[in-house]
Write a protein that binds this DNA or RNA. Structure first.
Length: 319
DNA sequence: TGCGGAATATTACTTACGTCA
DNA sequence: ATTGACGTAAGTAATATTCCG
C-alpha cells in the first residue's frame, strides 16, 4: 500500500508498508499461504498472548482469552456436572478405540476419516465432573447418543482445560501430532478437539491482531492526512510567494538553513552569483532545484513504522 | 529431474449452541 | 418466558505443502 503525493516543489508524502510477513510463530509448519495481507503486519505485530495485557491500547483492561464471565459460570457448570457425575460416558473423552487409532496414526486432520466419523456422532452433552488430580483432569460426562438426538450440543471446556490449552498455546501456537495427542490425553479430550481449539485460538488471535492493526492504521491515516494538509498549505504559500513580484525584494535573509539528512549538505542558501544565467534573477528558490533532494535524491520517504515512537512498540517488546 | 496424485495441515468461513442481559 | 448479542466449539471447503511412485 502506498499513498504518495508530489508536486513540483518536491514535497511528498508517502505511506509505505514494509514487506509483510505476518509471521505467527509457526514453530512447526511451513504453511504460510493465506496471510499475505498487504499491510504492515510485521511492524504492527503484536503479541496477543493471554499473559500480555493490551493495557496501552485498551484502557488498562487485561485481555484474557477465557470467556470474560466464564469463571463463575464454569464453577456453576462444574457443580451441575457433579450432579450428573454418574450418569454416563464422558462426551469429551475419546472412546478408547478412537484414541488408539489417532495415536497410532498420529494424525487428526479435519478432513481425515477419523475426524469425519466423529462429526455428528460426537455431538454430545458435556456433563463432566472435573476433579483436579495433579495435572490430570478427570471428567465424567454423559453421552447424548442415547436420546437419538442428532443435534449438535456445545461443549464447554472447563476452566482448567482452558488454562492448560492457553498455556500450551503460549508455548506453541501450533501443535505437532505428538503434542496434540499428549495434550489431549492430559485434558481428557479428543485430539481433534484440541486441534479445533488451536485452530479457533489462532483465528481469534489473528482477528484481534487485525483489529489492532486496523486501529493503528486509522491513526496513521489521520496523522498523515493532517500532515498532508499542512504541507499543501505550505506549498500554496510558497507558490504565492514565488509568483509575487515583491517576493525577491522583500525576501529577508534566511534565518535557518536546511540540511539534507542524508548527505548533510546544507541547502537553502545558495548565492545567486554562483548560479549564473538561470533565467530571471535567481534566488532563494534556486536551491529547490539545484539540491539533489529536489529530484527525490536523498529524500527519505515518510514511513510511520520507521518512527522511533511507534505507539505499538510499547505493546510488543521484542525480547 | 519433473510430474501427478494422495495425504496431511492450515485457514477462512459458517453453523450451532450456551450464556447473559 | 422470550429474545438478541456474543463467545466459542465444531463442520466444511479451499488451498498449500510434503511425500512417494
Amino acid at each position: 500500500m502506498m499513498v504518495q503525493e508530489r508536486d513540483e516543489l518536491g514535497l511528498s508524502l508517502s505511506l509505505s508498508f514494509p514487506g509483510s510477513s505476518h509471521e505467527q510463530n509457526k514453530s512447526n509448519t511451513t504453511n504460510n499461504k493465506h496471510n499475505q495481507m498487504p499491510h504492515a503486519s510485521t511492524p504492527l505485530e503484536l503479541n496477543l498472548m493471554p499473559s500480555q495485557p493490551l493495557n496501552l491500547l485498551h484502557n488498562n483492561t487485561t485481555t484474557t482469552w477465557t470467556h470474560p464471565a466464564s469463571h463463575d459460570r464454569k464453577m456453576e457448570a462444574c457443580r451441575v456436572d457433579r450432579r450428573s457425575l454418574l450418569t454416563g460416558i464422558d462426551v469429551n473423552r475419546i472412546p478408547a478405540m478412537t484414541v488408539d487409532m489417532e495415536e497410532e496414526t498420529g494424525v487428526s486432520s479435519p478432513n481425515s476419516t477419523i475426524s469425519s466419523l466423529s462429526g455428528n456422532k460426537r455431538s454430545l452433552v458435556n456433563e463432566r465432573s472435573e476433579l483436579a488430580n495433579g495435572d490430570e483432569i478427570l471428567e465424567c460426562s454423559r453421552s447424548d447418543d442415547e436420546d437419538g438426538d442428532n443435534s449438535r450440543k456445545k461443549l464447554r471446556l472447563t476452566k482448567d482445560q482452558s488454562a492448560i490449552l492457553e498455556e500450551s498455546f503460549k508455548e506453541h501456537n501450533t501443535l505437532n501430532p505428538k503434542q496434540k495427542i499428549a495434550l489431549a490425553k492430559r485434558l481428557g479430550l479428543r485430539p481433534r478437539q484440541v486441534e479445533v481449539w488451536f485452530q479457533n485460538r489462532r483465528a481469534r488471535t489473528k482477528l484481534k491482531q487485525t483489529e489492532v492493526d486496523c486501529e493503528f492504521l486509522k491513526r496513521c491515516c489521520q496523522t498523515l492526512t493532517e500532515e498532508n494538509r499542512k504541507l499543501q498549505k505550505e506549498v500554496q504559500e510558497l507558490r504565492a510567494l514565488k509568483s509575487s513580484p515583491q517576493f525577491y525584494m522583500q525576501m529577508t535573509p534566511p534565518t535557518t538553513l536546511t540540511m539534507c539528512p542524508s548527505c548533510e549538505r546544507v541547502g537553502g542558501l545558495q548565492s545567486a552569483t554562483t548560479t549564473s544565467s538561470a533565467g530571471p534573477s535567481i534566488t532563494q528558490a534556486e536551491p529547490l532545484r539545484s539540491h539533489p533532494m529536489n529530484s527525490n535524491h536523498h529524500r527519505l520517504p515518510f514511513n510511520p513504522w520507521a518512527s522511533p515512537q511507534r505507539p505499538l512498540d510499547a505493546l510488543h517488546p521484542r525480547s
